[in-house]
Amino acid sequence: MLNQSLSKKRKGFEVLMKALMLLSVGLTAALVLFLLIYVLGQGVPNITWELLSTKPSYLTEKIGILPDILNTVYIVLATLLIVLPLGVGAAIYLTEYASNKKVVGIIEYAAETLSGIPSIIYGLVGMLLFSNSMGTCLMAGALTLVIMNLPTIMRTTQESLKTVPQSYREGAFGLGAGKWRVVRTVVLPGCVDGVITGCILSVGRILGESAALLFTAGFAHALNGIIDGLAAPGATLTVALYVYAKEQGEFGVAFAIAAILMVLTVLINFAATLVQKHFAKRRSL
C-alpha cells in the first residue's frame, strides 16, 4: 500500500506542471539576459567621449547626445522639485489631517486612476494644458511628468508615514504642541524614507518616459543651460533614442543611448533595493 507510487495521471500532472514552470522561468531569465547582453553589446562600442560631449552638427554630420543628457537632467530636477512638495503634502494630508473617510477614499481612488492612465494620454493632455499656453518646452514636459509621478511620491510617502509610531505623535501632542508643530517636528522627519524611495522610482519613470514628452517637450537637440533649457524645446535621452531609431535610422546612436538607459535602469533598481533594505533594517531596530 505505502510503496505504491503515484498513479500515471498524477505523475503526468507533476511532470507537465514542473516542465511548464521551468520552461517559463527559463524563458523569462533568457529574455532578461538576452536584452542585457544584446543592448549592451550593440550599444557600448558606440559610446564614445565625442558622442557624450558634443551636440549634433549638420556641418560635420556627426551626432552628439550631450544636449539630450542635459535635457534629461534638467527635466528630472524640475519634475522632482515640483512634485515633491505636492506629493508629500498630499500624503501628509491623508495620514495626518484627513478625518473624513470618504475624502480619503476619493483621493486614493484618484491617485490609483492617475497611475493607470497611459503616458500617451498624459502627453496629449499635457500638450493641451501646458504646451498650448507656454509653448513646446522642457517645462511643459516636466509639468506633465509632475502629474504622472504624483501618485508614486504620494504612495511611498504615505507608506513611510504609516511606520511613524502613533506614540511619537501622542507624545508631542501631550507636550502641548500644536498640530503643525507635530507635523513639522515628528511627522516630516519620518517621511524621509518614502521621499527617497519615491524619488528613485520617479527618476526611473522619467528616464524611461517618451510618449508623454514627445508632444510636450518636443525633440530638439540644442545645447542650453538649465534656465534657458527649461524654456526651450528639447529631447530627453529616451525621446532622442526614439527619434534617432525611428525617424533617422541612426541605430548606432540609438543603441548607445539604449545601453546608457539600460545601465541607468540597473543602477536605479539596485539603489531602490538598497534603500528599501536599509530602511527596513532601520525600522526593525
Binding site: L2, N3, Q4, L6
Partner: peptide
C-alpha cells in the same frame, strides 16, 4: 516510513 520505497503522499 522513511524507506525509499515509501511514497510520502500515500503515507
Amino acid at each position: 516510513i522513511f524507506s525509499k520505497e515509501v511514497d510520502v503522499n500515500n503515507l
